[in-house]
Write a protein that binds this DNA or RNA. Structure first.
Length: 349
DNA sequence: AACACGTGGTG
DNA sequence: TCACCAAGTGT
């Protein structure tokens, strides 16, 4: 078997690799493409309805080259950006990175890809093994969905991560963001990739607000599409670059504007960096919730090599009603398999 | 639309 | 300390 399944799958597509990064130690390429190739389509109609599009065109032309050039210089050498990661590596990383910081993902990602280098390798194992290998990344349903996605890839796509956005979107655990991310990062396609980093960068640089709305809006999607460079390879780099800018410089708490390649044209700064207005972003509570209990229960089962008696699980939480509800929920979600005689384990299915 | 869903780092 | 935050998805 090859160690680069998805790369082999797309071997004929020369435009794929450079989208999201470069090999470590490689001098940053400085293609002369940025300015010329990234000019968005000109607005074709006059009138007020096109003002927003015109503004986005203008903003895009000013932002594409500096942001993409900054990325060439400062992109992190993350394992899923290396060519050998392939589409499967990109997909695994995207699942793990959902709501989870990069530095916690890296070691789990490395072990995962070493153990399951292709989707079929994961699909061949019980889903409980995926849950166990997920470790303490959090939201373990993602592990279950990644396992289910691997099975679907084996059954429906001959073992290769599909290239089509619609086919990616149909996979378990793949939503709008992840479908666009895989299509863009793994296959170099032109898609608006709108994650929390990109939303914040656009909110500041273009819309002039400190933070984006609580939930993604149609206006944000429209803006993201309008800002997307025309050229496919430039668009793919732009997707990764805007995300990286949000992750490294234009951060939520304390943006480092002195290091920002577009600080001089940032709408939020030009407006005087006004404080956020509107409804505060809801803080998700955790202590005392079912989620915390589920976490404790699953922690016991992850560490166990044999089925665990109910009494071991009862020890993790004092309140019996909530404890039972949490365990029932885990079983209902397919994260835990109940056995006769009050024994429990991670699923073997 | 609002809520559930883990875990750990940080200012 | 504790609220906030981290490459979202499914219902």
């Amino acid at each position: 078997m090859t160690s680069t399944p998805a790369t082999a799958q797309s071997a004929g597509d020369a435009a794929v690799e450079p989208a999201t990064g470069r090999p470590a130690g490689t001098p940053a390429p400085r293609p002369a493409d940025s300015a010329a190739a990234s000019a968005p389509a000109a607005a074709s109609v006059t009138g007020a309805a096109t003002d927003a599009a015109d503004a986005a065109d203008a903003a895009g032309r000013r932002l594409h080259a500096p942001v993409n050039d900054w990325f060439d210089e400062h992109a992190r050498d993350l394992p899923w950006r290396r060519p050998e990661a392939g589409a499967w590596g990109v997909m695994v990383s995207e699942f793990m990175l959902q709501q989870t910081p990069v530095n916690r993902v890296v070691p789990v990602y490395e072990q995962w890809l070493a153990r399951w280098p292709r989707p079929a390798d994961l699909a061949a194992e019980p889903s409980g093994e995926a849950v166990r290998a997920w470790g303490r990344l959090g939201y373990p349903r993602r592990a279950l969905r990644l396992h289910a996605a691997a099975s679907a890839i084996r059954e429906r796509h001959g073992g290769d991560v599909p290239r089509e956005h619609a086919q990616l979107l149909a996979l378990p655990g793949v939503g709008e963001y992840t479908a666009a991310a895989v299509a863009s990062f793994a296959y170099g396609q032109r898609h608006a990739v709108l994650d929390t980093n990109v939303r914040r960068v656009f909110a500041r640089a273009v819309t002039g607000r400190q933070y984006p709305p609580n939930a993604t809006t149609a206006a944000e999607r429209k803006l993201a599409r309008a800002l997307l460079p025309e050229d496919e390879a430039t668009a793919a780099k732009w997707a990764a670059a805007t995300m990286e800018l949000g992750a490294l410089v234009c951060t939520a708490r304390s943006p480092e504007c002195v290091r920002c390649p577009v600080a001089a044209q940032c709408a939020w700064r030009l407006a005087g960096s006004p404080e956020h207005e509107g409804p505060p972003r809801r803080v998700q509570t955790y202590a005392g919730t079912d989620r915390q209990v589920r976490g404790k229960l699953l922690d016991v089962l992850r560490e166990a090599v044999a089925p665990v008696p109910q009494a071991r699980l009862d020890a993790v939480w004092h309140e019996p009603i909530q404890r039972a509800r949490a365990l029932d929920g885990l079983v209902a979600d397919g994260l835990v398999e109940p056995l006769p005689d009050g024994l429990y384990r991670l699923p073997l299915t």
